[in-house]
Every structure is written in structure tokens, then in C-alpha cells.
Nucleic acid binder design. Sequence first.
DNA 1: TTAGATGCAAAGGGTTTGCAACGTC
DNA 2: GACGTTGCAAACCCTTTGCATCTAA
Lengths: 133, 133
Amino acid sequence: MNKTKGFQRMTKQRRIILEVLRNTTSHPTADWIYERVKEKIPNISLGTVYRNLKTLKEMGEIMELNYGSSFSRFDGNPKDHYHFVCEKCGKVYDVNMPVDETLNEKASQATGYKVYYHRCEFHGLCKECSSPD
Amino acid sequence: MNKTKGFQRMTKQRRIILEVLRNTTSHPTADWIYERVKEKIPNISLGTVYRNLKTLKEMGEIMELNYGSSFSRFDGNPKDHYHFVCEKCGKVYDVNMPVDETLNEKASQATGYKVYYHRCEFHGLCKECSSPD
DNA sequence: TTAGATGCAAAGGGTTTGCAACGTC
DNA sequence: GACGTTGCAAACCCTTTGCATCTAA
């Protein structure tokens, strides 16, 4: 989308933010990422985290998710995949099932529009939240 | 979710907000709804609109959508259906194709979690945005 | 009569941005 | 050396909330 922007520099901040995101499957919030990065760069600012998350998203390195919450979560897995959102605890999990590419074609026929991709989120109860304890 | 709440009263405000939402397929923002309702109830407040949208959502009368934007859009169609989001103009359209219920079962097997429902959003270019003019 | 709903306005909370200093290429 | 990036803090903006008043049932 923003192709007018110049070349991207790989700063220490950007590298560590991406590193944090690549090393978790928890789909964290910006603030969680901020806290983690602060462990390595104590004086980093929240603004920098947001700016880098935006840049990394534009670079296609990460994904931004906002499933119902008032705030975003970020996914360090750039590969196309589905998500599961627990209705009770709000956690977001990756779903290990193939993306159904035929849906794009079906939606394209139904709308008459060009469809590039789709996102799917499943809602339910995760293991922890459905156990009676 | 919020079943502890008492009986809901059908006030003039709530009725007209629902009416506005039922009579559009444009998936409007809270502010757009506010402006529309103001034509009939000039002194209604934004807070009331938000409170009613929340209540109507809990009643299952409407849906809240937030596909990438920093703000919510609302859908007066309570029937389960997919959406199309235009990458260029940001408009949200309904997709007239059957909801694939088998996906829930597949996701349930893949995760081991209880899946109640899923949401799907298709991204691409709508007719207006893909024409060269 | 009474608990839920409204209007108003202030507060909340995640995200963005202006600016001067800094760091990467 | 140029220009993208950072830290800081203020600004933004959508949404929520406290409170006195009002109203549907």
C-alpha cells in the first residue's frame, strides 16, 4: 500500500521487535511486545514499537489482528493461516488446518469482485476454559 | 454473555437506532448511525447510540465488525453471513454465499477446542475500485 | 412505582504524531 | 552526509462512564 516510502533500515529496535514476535505464538498486544523489548532496550518508547509494528506489517513480515477487541494483537507468523479466539479468556490460537483457497473463488463469483485473500476466525472455548475446574 | 442484565426496554431511541441499521446494507460506523438518528431525535447523544449498539449486539439483533479499522462498523443483518472488505475504499459488503458449516468441525478437530461459529472476511477490490476511471 | 434508559460532558485507553537528536547506509 | 528512525510527550479519536433526570412497563 505505502510504496512511496523509501528504503527501510534495520535498526536494533526493529530487529528485536521482530525477534520477539517471531519467538512467540501468543499473538501479543503492542504493550506486551513493548514490555518484552524493554528487557533488551530499556529506554525504547512505545511510539517506536507502534511505528515498527506498522512498518513490519507493511513489509509483510507480520500480521495485525483485531478480533472483537478494542486493541490490536500481532502475529509474527507471516504465513497465511486461520485463528481461533476463545470467547472466555480472549486468547488467540493458530489453527493448523489448510487455508481453503476455493473460498476466494466462491466469494468472487458471489460478489463479482476481485478477491485477493480471506481471513477466518473461529470462535469457541479453548481447552483451559472448557474444563470444569 | 451478559445474562445478569434485566429486561430490555424498547425506547424510542433503541427502536430508531435498530430501524436505521435494518434499513441499510452499508455497515455504518457509530457516528454515521448517530447522524442518521439525529434526523429523527435531534437531541440524542452519542453515548446513547453506543449504549444501544452494545445492548442490541447482546440481544443478537445486530453484529459488530472491526476489520482492520481503528473503529467499529455495525451490521443490521443478524443472519450469519460472510463479508467482503475493499482494500482500497474500505467499504464492507455482504457476501451472498452459504456459510460453510463444515469449517467449524474441521477447526475443532485441528485444535481440539469447542468451536461455536466462525467469521470470514474476504479482501480484494470492489467493482468501483477496480474500474480504471 | 421502579429499575432501566437518556443527555451531557468528562474521562478512558489504545494509537498516532511533531520535533529535535540520533544512527544506518 | 542524507534521510530514515528514535524518545518523549502531547495530541488524537473512538468509546465508555458517572450522575442527575426521565420514562417504559
